[in-house]
């Protein structure tokens, strides 16, 4: 009897939060699927007939090249960011993992970039690479470039700017997860490896990286999911430009819905985004299971 009451109390406690999330997140996701098959624009969004049109919205999207461009851009951007964040994040984690007095304090300071609103970060980078011109100024003083680069006006530099800005946001996250990973590696492994004559390079590739594998897996997937959803950064820094060169799936879905007021096209674009995330999520879950089974 008591057990049953326990269960009931438990469920009752979870219920309000669960209902909230179902109502404001799960329902919209399902509604989005429906919306993608209807024809909803600014005319009939609040009342009036909303005709069923099947896959027409999706056909429209794929007929325009922007959708494909935005998928391509998002993937390039995401992969580049993950790789850079990981490499620099690992370097930071290893540096601040060395025993020196300021290590913890400095590691904490680095966290700030992760906590800032993305809008602010976007604004700072837009200024440094654009109007403020400090990046060009420094690069030309170091004789790394001869002519000024139009960072935000030329397609590839604009993408590079966004990748740099997002990497700046993501480094602390990678650093923290890798730091926790590094702390789980027993120190004596390194010592016995040193006695066996392993140099720093060997130790890194033979001990550090393999033992960080679980942390690296979750980083790659979480990194993918968190990077893939970029919105504010792009909207503020480049607004998808020049001419869609940095248009992402999220900004394109937003543009369709709230700048062109083609709500069902926006919903369809968001659904495609959802499918890609779902795919990555499933891969992650399978990976976690496999890892658990192999006992790591």
């Amino acid at each position: 009897m008591l057990n049953r009451r326990q269960k009931m109390t438990g469920y009752l406690l979870v219920l309000p939060a669960l209902l909230y999330m179902l109502f404001f997140v799960a329902y919209p996701i399902i509604d989005n699927l429906r919306l993608g098959f209807l024809d909803v624009s600014v005319m009939n969004v609040s009342h009036g007939e909303q005709p069923f049109v099947g896959f027409v919205n999706y056909k429209d999207l794929f007929a325009e090249s922007v959708l494909v461009t935005s998928i391509f851009n998002t993937l390039i951007y995401t992969v580049a960011c993950i790789v850079l964040q990981f490499i620099i994040g690992l370097a930071f984690a290893m540096l601040f993992n060395r025993p020196f007095r300021l290590a913890q304090r400095l590691r904490g300071l680095v966290m700030i970039s992760w906590l800032l609103p993305a809008t602010i970060t976007a604004m700072m980078y837009k200024f440094m690479f654009g109007a403020g011109n400090i990046v060009n100024d420094v690069l030309s003083r170091l004789h790394l470039i001869r002519d000024q680069i139009d960072w935000l006006i030329a397609p590839i530099p604009a993408m590079i700017t966004l990748i740099i800005a997002n990497t700046w946001i993501g480094i602390p996250f990678n650093m923290m997860l890798l730091t926790t990973g590094l702390m789980t590696i027993p120190k004596d492994i390194y010592e016995s490896a040193s006695i066996d004559g392993a140099n720093a390079c060997n130790r890194f590739f033979r001990i550090t990286l393999p033992l960080l594998r679980p942390a690296i897996y979750s980083l790659l997937v979480l990194g993918f999911i968190y990077t893939f959803k970029v919105f504010e950064l792009v909207l503020i820094a480049t607004h998808g430009g020049p001419v869609n060169a940095t248009q992402m799936m999220s900004t394109y879905a937003y543009k369709l819905s709230f700048e062109l007021f083609k709500f069902s096209h926006g919903a369809a674009a968001a659904n495609i985004m959802f499918l890609i995330l779902l795919f990555v999520g499933v891969i992650y879950l399978r990976m976690v299971r496999k890892e658990e089974r192999s006992g790591l």
């Binding site: 939060a17 669960l18 999330m21 404001f24 997140v25 799960a26 329902y27 919209p28 996701i29 509604d31 989005n32 919306l35 909803v40 969004v45 609040s46 979480l222 999911i225 968190y226 893939f228 959803k229 919105f231 799936m249 999220s250 900004t251 879905a253 937003y254 819905s257 709230f258 709500f263 926006g266 919903a267 968001a270 985004m273 959802f274 995330l277 999520g281």
Partner: peptide, 23 residues
């Protein structure tokens, strides 16, 4: 379920949420 909802992008539910709030 909670973990997954935390990861979903805002831009994903923006349009249906807008319509829901409008109603």
């Amino acid at each position: 379920l909670f973990l997954v909802t935390q990861m979903l992008p805002s831009s994903l539910i923006l349009t249906p949420l807008f319509i829901q709030f409008k109603h």
